[in-house]
Design a protein around this nucleic acid. Structure first.
Ligand SMILES: NC(=O)c1ccc[n+]([C@@H]2O[C@H](COP(=O)([O-])OP(=O)(O)OC[C@H]3O[C@@H](n4cnc5c(N)ncnc54)[C@H](O)[C@@H]3O)[C@@H](O)[C@H]2O)c1
Ligand SMILES: NC(=O)c1ccc[n+]([C@@H]2O[C@H](COP(=O)([O-])OP(=O)(O)OC[C@H]3O[C@@H](n4cnc5c(N)ncnc54)[C@H](O)[C@@H]3O)[C@@H](O)[C@H]2O)c1
Lengths: 229, 229
DNA sequence: CCGGGCTTGTGCACAAGGTCACAAGGTTCC
DNA sequence: GGAACCTTGTGACCTTGTGCACAAGCCCGG
């Protein structure tokens, strides 16, 4: 259906796994390994080998039958597909507990996500320098985003301010938002929004701890090791 | 198939949404509203109304046709289903940047998740008190888990230590783990594992920013507002 | 040059999840 | 008492995702 673009459309589930493959491949490359099979990569990524092959097939045919995938090449192709060949300046809004930790997080720059600005509404924080950056006022958000070409906004404010901050980010031109506040935020079409919600994760864990999987129905011995998906 | 338990099996996707409903309902209750329709709840949760009804139907029939759902009752039923009627003591392993932020996070206790212990491998950190708790050594993990009845473990160590820490947690008796380290961790059957991975989220955002949805194929006017799912 | 042995790429069948539409069932108002 | 109105609960259908199994394809040894 309408694949007139010639390019296959990459499924969401695949997109979510590409970064995992990428990380595993980078580690493999560092170990000096030149080639990797789907089975090995699947083990490293904690998924099924067929899934790996199908996922990678969306990028084109970069594997060699009987041999596997060339690690360096694959890393490059995945990076290109994920858009990691360019820099993505990030603004963090809300420099409290969490904002501080994020600002100081070293792993940020590793994949081209550079913290370009820190913004907070509290005037008493404007003096501070955090992780080498000056904290700026909320009113400076629009200018900062425009001037430093910020493309991703991270919301680390209290939940009550999340929607307002999201609106400001969108208005300023940010097209991707990552929300850490425990609030439902909505954005206009064309803007991507993802959330990280600690409370939800814990409550899901609580559910499964309260509802042990029914092992009485089928005493199968299949080793269903839960792995990160 | 094998619903001999009499209880319907709650789909994973539904479980992941229950905490969102719960939060929305608590806010609604605070506002003094006694009854809520699936449509209103759907709007608050950022989902489809039919989905809300189907999700809630798994808990039993707690709605009244023509009226809606009684807010207090629903809050109670969801809490019960999620297992939030009891306390879940949590241990945080790795008291660095992120571990500090988590330890100081006030929103923790709100739903019965109490930080019961802080553990780190670095001997120089053992002296410190963080958020009113003394940081304890990795060798104390097993005792701490047993004595304080810890049921959930949070991994906030570097990626290289994640699997090792997970193994220790499992060995100590923890059956639910939340992993913040960017590493694939695997656990035995019967242990729940969830992950929160900042780098992956950013890379997914990067992908969608690099691949604008193909608006040329179908210039439909449907308002597909991306909301948090 | 050919055959054996691997590993990829993918068709297919199935499972899970989402959306629509509507009958069932309750309430309210006259 | 009854009819109009509203909202739930759910069956049917569609989309997306998963896993199996196997043919196609490539390398290497002889
Ligand atoms: N601390 C954690 O470990 C943690 C974990 C998970 C989720 N969260 C969530 O992350 C968010 C931040 O948590 P925190 O512990 O850092 O809170 P915090 O109170 O320490 O920090 C919030 C910061 O946001 C600023 N702020 C408030 N309103 C603002 C606005 N309108 N615009 C810009 N800045 C504004 C405040 O001045 C403050 O500096 C919260 O929503 C919290 O629920 C925190
Ligand atoms: N800082 C952030 O904002 C942030 C954001 C997302 C993800 N993360 C991830 O969270 C993890 C922690 O990040 P951080 O910034 O706090 O790092 P950090 O280096 O500040 O802290 C790591 C802590 O773990 C301790 N540690 C090391 N090995 C250990 C072991 N085997 N057992 C117990 N403790 C051990 C260290 O002593 C240190 O205190 C990392 O994996 C990081 O990638 C951090």
């Amino acid at each position: 259906m309408a694949d007139r673009a010639g390019q296959r459309r990459i499924p969401e589930a695949t997109v979510a796994r590409l970064p995992i493959y990428s990380r595993a491949l980078l580690e493999t490359a560092e170990a000096g390994v030149g080639t990797i099979s789907s089975e090995r990569l699947a083990a490293l990524a904690g998924v099924n080998a067929a899934k790996v092959r199908k996922d990678l097939s969306y990028l084109g045919s970069y594997g060699t039958r009987g041999v596997g995938y060339e690690v360096d090449h694959l890393v490059h192709e995945i990076s290109r597909e994920l858009g990691l060949t360019q820099d993505w300046p990030v603004v963090i809004v809300g420099i409290g507990n969490l904002g501080h930790a994020l600002a100081n997080y070293r792993g940020f720059g590793a994949r081209g996500f550079r913290v370009a600005a820190l913004v907070d509404a509290d005037p008493t924080k404007l003096e501070r320098k955090v992780a080498g950056l000056r904290v700026e006022g909320l009113d400076a958000l629009a200018d900062v985003v425009a001037q430093r070409d910020v493309s991703i906004g991270i919301i680390a404010t209290p939940a009550s301010a999340a929607q307002e901050v999201a609106d400001l980010l969108v208005e300023a031109g940010v097209r991707s938002i990552l929300n850490f506040a425990p609030a439902v935020v909505s954005v206009p079409e064309g803007v991507s929004l993802r959330k990280v919600d600690l409370a939800i994760e814990l409550q899901i864990l609580s559910f499964y701890q309260s509802h042990p999987p029914d092992r009485l129905v089928d005493e199968s011995t299949e080793t269903v090791r839960e792995a990160q998906g």
